[in-house]
Design a protein around this nucleic acid. Structure first.
Lengths: 222, 222
DNA sequence: ATGGATCCAGTGATGGATCCAT
DNA sequence: ATGGATCCATCACTGGATCCAT
């Protein structure tokens, strides 16, 4: 699969997938379908990468490198409401305090996103889940302001060595939560006083209220 | 296999292996023996790690962590002469210029070594190769002076941005050679002027003349 | 509902070294 | 003979996210 050459090309391909069952798409790509997501949490995202010709496994580069577009699948229920928060990026604990919002991974990743909603209620087996209508999105100025506000608060706390005071309740539209293989993973962090500590790796996640609003504006849903 | 508790314990275990064929040792550990080393270059070293109870896969720590002892296998011919150079350590290209010999990876790794010679002429199949008599070694003051001299020259050149002028001919007892999966691997390096360049990763290797002298002193060989 | 915990795939870095063309 | 090139295993890390106890 060649990478798409234009945004129109990309969106066209994504719309071709709308209404199709994951089993069909997987079969065409010769990919086995897992019975559930418990041990294959990223499977839908990786399936869509292949189906759309994303540059696989590109470190710190957008999924569609030539276009500067990031791909995000979004599990939704039958009314179109997001079922899960959306992972955005891991947090570089030792740098995020000295980084400006403009230079942040979060801003870069969310600058241009192809959202691919997938009807993915838990009661529906992965094979039977259906792709909904994709949309290209960039944050409105209000959305970017909200993201920036949360980012500055949270990145600021981490930069000040207050990471252990952060929990998932902070942030209006974006939160910080663990991002690790399991609870025993530890990462070194050097705090404001220059002391070294170890902590669980974290990531930024979009709240479902935020992604719900994105879908609502686009499709008048939910 | 528990790690050895003392140097005597370790040396005793190593001596138990002397005279034995690799096929036997591998069979006891349930490890398959490759037909040749072409695609299994590190196999003998990894076999010995298991056979001696080394702490497997310990990053930047000695193989026998509690003892501060590094394990090195050494392929020799029937007269006891080393057949290959000995890899010591990869080179941290951006730091080695500012590091003192005393703080170098090379000095730390070679401070205390269990040498395990293995009769390993190419004409002998891996299964039939035989372990020779192991020895615990620390560099004599002359040996350390020679290592230090080469290290300071080579590390100095790298620190000055002259890495591309280094080749395997430099260094009396220790040389710098590529250390990579293949010739296309590249690593970033920031030179003396602060400019970023990319280059092949390198490592420090002991010349066979140096390891030959170690064996000779210990066993009056070769 | 949701915050904390967890799971897989793929790439990169490092440690184990030997191969092989000249 | 030997300097440059190469090969495997393993672990860490990142990117793909969803699970699940409360």
């Amino acid at each position: 699969m060649q990478p798409p050459k234009t945004e129109e090309d990309l969106l066209g391909r994504a719309r071709q997938l709308a209404g199709r069952r994951l089993a069909e798409i997987a079969a065409e790509l010769g990919v086995p379908v897992p019975p559930d997501m418990r041990r294959h949490k990223g499977w839908i995202g990786q399936l869509m990468e292949r189906a759309l010709g994303a540059t696989a496994g590109n470190k710190d580069a957008p999924d569609f490198e030539q276009l500067g577009v990031e791909l995000k699948t979004l599990p939704i229920d039958r009314t179109g409401k997001p079922l899960e928060t959306t992972f955005v990026a891991t947090i570089p604990l030792n740098e995020v305090g000295q980084t400006a919002w403009e230079d942040s991974r979060v801003r870069r990743k969310l600058a241009r996103v192809l959202w691919v909603p997938v009807l993915a209620e838990r009661s529906i087996a992965p094979a039977e889940r259906v792709v909904a209508s994709a949309m290209l999105w960039s944050p409105s100025s209000e959305q970017e302001a909200a993201l920036r506000f949360d980012w500055e608060q949270l990145a600021g706390m981490i930069g000040c060595g207050d990471i252990e005071r952060i929990d998932g309740t902070l942030g209006e539209v974006m939160q910080v939560r663990p991002k690790a293989a399991h609870g025993g993973v530890r990462r070194r962090i050097i705090d404001a006083e220059g002391d070294m500590n170890i902590t669980l790796p974290r990531g930024f996640y979009l709240r479902t209220s935020f992604t719900r609003a994105i879908l609502k504006k686009a499709f008048m849903l939910a």
